[in-house]
Design a protein around this nucleic acid. Structure first.
Lengths: 239, 239
DNA sequence: GCTAGTTTCAAACAAGCGTTTGAAACCCAA
DNA sequence: TTGGGTTTCAAACGCTTGTTTGAAACTAGC
């Protein structure tokens, strides 16, 4: 590992920017993977954007797949750690009373918001990349996400189960699945549906406002009464 | 267009299977695009699976992108037509009374369910493919989906606006966005989170049961009271 | 049976891919 | 200043990609 790692340093107008090759590759890869997807993004595109030699990507990360995982790990791991820590804090503060759905959801959302806010643009790019990674069919991506999320999901499922004691555990699992889905889909923010929905341009990229709208929606869904057999019959008999 | 289109005909054990080259390519492409994504699926993989010559794909569809659009159009266009027709039927039946959220949602879900149920496997494959296409970064896919969905989305936004007259139109647009997101994400059905959620295996691929769980969740979310300034402050001040 | 139009086929095309190589450049401790 | 480890670099590797080509095979009408 690098002694001569910090190599190129540029003094811009009012901030000192120094980035080693590894970080430059990660930053460029994050943006380009977000923009074009994993398969459609070539290492040549990444290394050109990062202004480093093509071979540097393989030298520092081994392979394209490992580079992709490194891009995800860099921000995903701290975010999920934050989520678990926050949940722990809330649970400690609540003593042995169950947390409300709103509090649990906010423990999920706040670390994502923090990511969306800090850093010049990297945080937002990453959240969009993450939303896309969820839907990516590549097995190595799916397995990677499974392992990265396993512990956090288990914690949140337990928390929601306590908050919604009248629901069967299975139903809680489903609703957690819906919550994760809506969150990742929304943060992925594909332009297609946004255009369709005719949002005000100023609001489209305001993640804070977005989550303030999404959270009450999801909290209400979590607390919804279960559909009984009659309801289900009424809903779908006409197919 | 083909006079000699129906060329290969195979009599299997109890059904007669006759498929022209074009359909064989579409079927194979649907399954492989679903499994590996657009970029990672090569024309050679598709044409080999379809047992046709490599050049046949370009001959019949022009390009790989046009083939992908043809795969989507074949089922998406009829499904969205169904959705609009069903909504029209409900509105006619209701006279000048506004529809409930449940009825509107069922008008969205029933055509998707119909697709998931009929056909040996193609319908389910297609829904998963569609869910993935939503998250695909390729511009031609996003533009294609925008154009395919524009009319239907406009109809449903109007219907939800009538059903939720107390909500600002903008809020209705957001919630419709959440509903579309949850639906597509859920139907895409990436294995990763399902494994995490520890679902009973028998239920994972039961789309009917899945939508029966999702619909009440979304209906409750649609009817949620709006978060006021105080709520929002309370939720997110601690970031 | 000939002809015209449609569809298939094997082969090749240029271009781009991820990865590897071996030498050059670089840095820092001795 | 020398030497050894780290990092960069240009070039090439073998392979796959989407697409094109021109001839062959096929179908149907006259």
């Amino acid at each position: 590992m690098a002694i001569a790692a910090i190599q190129k340093s540029v003094r811009s107008s009012d901030v000192i920017v120094e980035v080693d090759t590894k970080s430059r590759i990660l930053d460029a890869a994050e943006e380009l993977f977000m923009e074009h997807g994993f398969e459609a993004t070539s290492l040549r595109l990444i290394t050109t954007a990062a202004a480093v030699n093509l071979a540097a990507a393989n030298y520092h990360f081994g392979s394209k797949e490992e580079l992709f995982q490194a891009v995800l790990t860099r921000r995903l791991d701290p975010m999920n750690q934050d989520r678990m820590q926050l949940l722990t804090n809330y649970e400690t503060a609540a003593g042995n009373k169950a947390l409300t759905c709103e509090v649990i959801i906010s423990a999920m959302f706040i670390p994502a918001l923090k990511l969306a806010r800090d850093q010049s643009q990297g945080g937002k790019n990453f959240l969009r990349l993450l939303g896309r990674a969820y839907a990516d069919p590549a097995p190595f991506i799916r397995e990677f996400l499974s392992s990265q999320y396993a512990e956090m999901i288990a914690r949140y499922r337990a928390a929601f189960a306590r908050a919604l004691p009248h629901l069967p555990r299975e139903e809680v699992s489903w609703r957690l699945h819906f919550v994760m889905g809506a969150l990742s889909y929304t943060l992925a923010g594909t332009d297609a549906l946004k255009v369709i929905a005719q949002f005000h341009p100023a609001e489209v990229n305001n993640d804070e406002l977005l989550l303030k709208r999404l959270a009450p929606f999801l909290a209400a869904g979590l607390r919804a009464p279960m559909a009984n057999a009659t309801d289900a019959h009424q809903w779908f008999q006409e197919t």
